[in-house]
Computed example of a mutant assay.
Amino acid sequence: MKIDLILMAAGNSRRFGSNKLLYEWRGKKLYRYMFDALVEAAEGLPQVRVRVVTQYEEILKMAEELAKREAPGFLTGVYSPESVKGLSYTIRKTLDFEAADPPEAFAFFTADTPEFSSSDIREFLEAFLASGRPLACVRCGETYGNPAVFSWKYAPLFQVLTGDQGGKKVLNQLLDDCFFYELPEGSRRDIDTPEDL
């Protein structure tokens, strides 16, 4: 199955107080943890591509430079300056780009989950494919959401999102069709404030 892994690296970091994606943590900028994990997970998997959507020129430039070293089309940076207006703008920009060569499924990953590894990503995708369901998401205890993978047939549902609405709004409409990939509670940590590091 042709699947695109989409790194959402365009957030405004309002609660963090500065651009958390470019914050140096344990010797590496925060966004690089998920970026590196996605590239490692996708390499060697047939028909899996990586997209990096961002409003930040530094992240875009990094993606474009690395894309030159990869197979054509494997890695692409998508510039989304309107992401400053909210998450829905990031999603629409990405899916508008994808529509030119749509995958069978697309998966959203946030750039502020540095402990989600390449093996976690592969296992999540393998479980989704084995499930036969048209979408899947991670669940830790009672909490569910990102990362999530959707069949391309659901792409139109994302086009009506506004402001800071994201994939969770679409996911909540489709829970009966969703495969939940269980992780131990607390194992998927988002970085929202400096205290979370």
Score class of each variant (00 low, 15 high):
residue 7 L to F: 03
residue 7 L to V: 07
residue 11 G to V: 03
residue 13 S to D: 12
residue 17 G to Q: 08
residue 17 G to M: 08
residue 17 G to T: 07
residue 18 S to A: 15
residue 19 N to C: 14
residue 23 Y to S: 01
residue 32 R to Q: 05
residue 32 R to F: 00
residue 36 D to T: 02
residue 40 E to F: 02
residue 45 L to H: 07
residue 47 Q to L: 12
residue 51 R to S: 11
residue 51 R to N: 13
residue 52 V to K: 06
residue 52 V to N: 06
residue 53 V to K: 04
residue 53 V to Q: 05
residue 58 E to T: 12
residue 61 K to G: 13
residue 61 K to I: 12
residue 67 A to Q: 05
residue 67 A to H: 06
residue 68 K to M: 13
residue 69 R to Y: 15
residue 71 A to C: 13
residue 71 A to R: 15
residue 72 P to S: 11
residue 72 P to Q: 09
residue 73 G to F: 11
residue 75 L to M: 08
residue 75 L to C: 08
residue 80 S to F: 07
residue 83 S to N: 10
residue 85 K to W: 12
residue 89 Y to S: 11
residue 95 L to H: 05
residue 97 F to Q: 06
residue 101 D to L: 13
residue 107 A to T: 11
residue 110 T to D: 10
residue 111 A to M: 03
residue 113 T to D: 00
residue 113 T to I: 06
residue 114 P to W: 00
residue 116 F to C: 02
residue 119 S to G: 06
residue 121 I to D: 02
residue 125 L to E: 04
residue 125 L to A: 06
residue 126 E to K: 15
residue 126 E to Q: 13
residue 126 E to F: 14
residue 127 A to L: 10
residue 127 A to G: 11
residue 129 L to A: 14
residue 135 L to W: 04
residue 138 V to S: 02
residue 146 N to Q: 07
residue 148 A to Q: 08
residue 148 A to Y: 02
residue 149 V to K: 01
residue 150 F to C: 04
residue 151 S to I: 05
residue 154 Y to P: 07
residue 162 T to G: 13
residue 165 Q to K: 09
residue 168 K to W: 02
residue 169 K to L: 10
residue 171 L to G: 04
residue 172 N to S: 12
residue 176 D to T: 11
residue 176 D to C: 14
residue 177 D to Y: 13
residue 177 D to H: 12
residue 178 C to F: 03
residue 179 F to H: 14
residue 184 P to F: 01
residue 186 G to V: 02
residue 187 S to H: 02
residue 188 R to M: 05
residue 190 D to W: 02
residue 190 D to A: 06
residue 194 P to I: 05
residue 196 D to R: 03
